[in-house]
Amino acid sequence: MKKEEMFNYKKLTAEELKQFNDEGFLVLKGVLKPQGLEQMRKECMAAWAKEKEAFDPNKSWLQNSLLVNIHHQAPTVRDYYFDGPMVDIATQLIGPNVKGATSQLTFKMKGNTKPFGWHQDNGYGELEPYNALTTLTALDDTDRGNGCLWLIPGSHKQGQIRVQQSEEQKKSQSEIVVEADDNLAVPMEMKAGDALIFNCWMLHKSDGNYSTDRDRRILFLRYADADAIEVYNNGRPRLGKLVRGNSKFDEVKQFESDI
């Protein structure tokens, strides 16, 4: 199936660019066409079933909710990640030189009532320059009943928030929770096939999935400047496949993401 039959490509308008700069986020309707949504669900669920079991409250949030490098197992995700509509949008928001920084499934299956506290994505993997972009593509309708995302418009303007963690917390990969005012939060309710994009400093959280019959499945893709470095890793370049332009780092230019 051709990519044009699965994905809706678009260019952000001047109004949308202004909203992103002012509020730090955008919701894009119908980025996945019905055929693309169906195929992506099929491939993602096959990969999930290989590695994951039913929700277990005794397991960590990593074990219950995340499956990393999903593009290795799902060809439609790989096409979407490396040459889909999010790449064109990333070049508008980041610049002409862009690499893929993260691909993973972020699922809250029915029964997973564990909330995920306020945080910035750049708090979990601090990249510089600070223009990394998070994209969340909904594989299900997401709303307050099944654990949709909440964010605080304009909170990206605070910049990087430093959270102190002990060595034990770092080793156990415990959550990084930031103080935030719930009264300012806005729910990001989406239809399956929509995409939410936001700034790396955006404060966001999610509540548990209290639905008895609906999952909340999201494809998480992160893009960064092609020369972005990992601040937490002695300034080493973040490895990721170049999706547009070039990089000054040979490691990035030579990186093959599917190895």
Rank of each mutant, 00 (worst) to 15 (best):
L242N: 05
I197T: 03
N209I: 06
A192Y: 08
M190Y: 06
N246I: 12
E189Q: 14
P129V: 02
D250G: 13
F198T: 08
L133M: 03
N246P: 08
L242T: 08
Y124F: 13
N122Y: 06
T142Q: 11
T135G: 03
I161A: 08
G208M: 04
T137S: 00
E256D: 15
D215Y: 06
T212N: 10
D215K: 07
S155E: 10
E256W: 11
I176N: 08
K205P: 07
S166M: 05
D250I: 13
Y223R: 01
D207V: 05
C200A: 11
L242F: 07
E189V: 10
R162D: 13
V252R: 02
V186H: 03
G123H: 05
G208F: 02
P153V: 05
E168Y: 02
I218D: 01
Q158V: 02
D194S: 03
A192S: 10
A192G: 08
A226D: 05
E189M: 11
S211V: 08
N146E: 03
S172E: 15
R214C: 07
S206T: 12
A228V: 01
D227G: 12
S174E: 15
E175H: 12
H156D: 09
R162G: 06
M190L: 14
F255M: 08
L139M: 12
E128I: 13
C200W: 04
G147Y: 07
S206Q: 09
G240I: 11
R244D: 11
S247I: 06
E179S: 15
Y223H: 00
W201I: 00
D215M: 06
R236Q: 15
A180D: 04
N246L: 10
V163R: 10
E256R: 14
G125Y: 12
W150P: 02
K253A: 09
V231D: 08
C200H: 10
G240D: 15
D227R: 13
E189N: 11
A192I: 06
L139H: 09
L149Q: 07
D213A: 02
K241A: 04
D181S: 13
E230C: 15
L203E: 07
A132R: 00
H119C: 04
G240V: 13
E128D: 13
P187F: 01
A180M: 07
K205Q: 11
G208V: 07
N234M: 14
S174F: 06
E167Y: 07
N183E: 14
Q120Y: 03
Q254G: 12
N233E: 15
L133E: 00
Q254K: 15
C148E: 00
N183G: 14
A138K: 01
K241E: 11
S247P: 08
